[in-house]
Amino acid sequence: MAQYIFYALSIVTILSALYVVFAKSPMYSVIAMIVCFFSIAGHYVLLNAQFLAIVHVIVYAGAIMVLFLFVVMLLNLNQEPDKSHGKLLRVAAAISGGMLFLVLLLSLNTSETGTFILPEKSDIGLVEHVGKKLFNEYVLPFEISSVLLLSAIIGSVVLAKKES
């Protein structure tokens, strides 16, 4: 049962990702991206990472993609047709991307594979477990990341502000 869900989710993920790349208008890219993110959230649920699945939906699909949409609309990009690179560069891009995939596959193939011992029930992805980790071992990075976010807020305000 689970593997069929995996297949379905994977197909949706890859197709939507491809659409992000090849869509004519940035608007369609953004929408495809949202679909892609939801399918990844599905993967997280499948992997028993329920907490991350929720956070992923809220942060990526909810916040980041809205931000993208917002900018696309703000700049009114839909009117001009998107030009793509010259032919040579496109071929080069395709070749190097393909090469990268091949090389990755090759290295995955040659690397040693271990076997995982899987328990019947897994609860490491639950809020309780991740929260404990976050507030014990990783409390300092956690606090520092809040500073990072603060500086990102200030930075984006300063950058996007109209120069008077």
Partner: peptide, 14 residues
């Protein structure tokens, strides 16, 4: 790799 290819393919910064 799809992501990498997208970065190389597209001209729109967004």
């Amino acid at each position: 790799c799809i992501g990498v290819m997208g970065v190389l393919f597209r001209r729109n910064v967004i």
